[in-house]
């Protein structure tokens, strides 16, 4: 058995752990405009990133957007997931494919679609102006709103499918029993369905939150130059600034923030619904 796991294990070490270690090492180096990188063992990149108000605000924006998107996905995804899970007919597989459909289109292409829809000359503003409902175009693009809309559209299927798998495991009779005992639909949902769906809520939220924290193409294309999230900031340091040590430090700060928030969130959800 061990012999069978070994090759795959080595591959994982090689492809995942090694680059991470390398990146960790780079993050402790010093940046030099002439030589790019000077060997060092100093936390100065981390200190700079944490002290710089710009990167603090980028990190905060990233966390707020990721959290907002996750909550939005939960709110939008739960009813859909419930509906999908309780679907009996042969339409179920068709509905599943439809929900997966957005994932067939790449991030960049999809963002182009959002630009065409949300831009000042886009479909929505054109329609509203055509109807004389507004004078000046609504600022729908190149702001947080556009980024949230764009990200949610990408990650929602993950949330729906994760939740629906868990909801399918909750027997219909359990809900009927609640109704039979006098629980109105909302009460039955709150007392029976939601607590039993918590593993799905936790798994879906973690998955979606991680995807949101690391979103790259959508914030770049729909956020515009003023709106910065962490993944594009890391990229800027590596490619535009050639500052690998600082980029690596930012990457680890993003990783750390994602991990901490994920663990805290899971713990909170777990404690709330332990019983």
């Amino acid at each position: 058995m061990a012999a069978l796991i070994l090759p795959a294990g080595l591959l994982v070490v090689l492809l995942m752990v090694a680059p991470m270690l390398l990146l960790a090492r780079i993050s402790l180096n010093q940046f030099s405009p002439t030589e790019m990188m000077v060997e060092a063992m100093s936390p100065e990149n981390y200190i700079r990133a944490v002290q710089d108000p710009y990167y603090r605000s980028v990190l905060l924006t990233t966390m707020v957007v990721a959290l907002g998107c996750t909550l939005l996905c939960l709110a939008l995804g739960f009813p859909t997931a419930y509906w999908l899970a309780r679907m009996q007919s042969r339409w179920k597989s068709i509905a599943t494919i439809l929900i997966l459909f957005p994932l067939l289109v790449g991030n960049v292409v999809r963002s182009a679609g959002w630009i065409a829809l949300l831009g000042n000359e886009g479909a929505i503003n054109a329609a509203l102006r055509g109807l004389h409902l507004i004078e000046a175009p609504l600022p729908l693009l190149y702001n947080a709103f556009a980024v949230v809309v764009g990200i949610v559209a990408v990650v929602l299927p993950y949330m729906i499918l994760t939740l629906s798998a868990v909801i399918e495991g909750i027997p219909r009779q359990t809900e009927e029993a609640a109704a039979n005992l006098g629980a109105r639909p909302l009460t039955a949902f709150r007392r029976v369905v939601l607590p039993l769906a918590i593993p799905g809520v936790a798994a879906g939220s973690v998955l979606v939150f991680i995807l949101c924290m690391n979103a790259y193409a959508t914030p770049v294309l729909l956020g515009g130059p003023q709106f910065k999230m962490m993944a594009p900031a890391v990229y800027d340091q590596f490619v535009r600034g050639n500052n690998w040590p600082f980029g690596a430090a930012l990457a680890f700060i993003l990783l750390f923030a994602t991990m901490v928030l994920t663990l805290v969130g899971s713990a909170l959800i777990g404690r709330r619904y332990r019983r």
């Binding site: 027997p171 009779q173 359990t174 009927e176 029993a177 609640a178 109704a179 039979n180 005992l181 006098g182 629980a183 109105r184 639909p185 039955a188 007392r191 029976v192 607590p195 039993l196 619904y273 019983r275």
Partner: peptide, 27 residues
């Protein structure tokens, strides 16, 4: 169903798995 005064025992029992026996009965 919630406004009818019936008490049903389901074939699968349909107990609430996240609640204790006493909480199930108290529901």
């Amino acid at each position: 169903p919630y406004a009818r005064d019936t008490g049903m025992v389901f074939q699968s029992y349909a107990l609430f798995p996240h609640m204790s026996v006493a909480q199930n009965v108290a529901f």
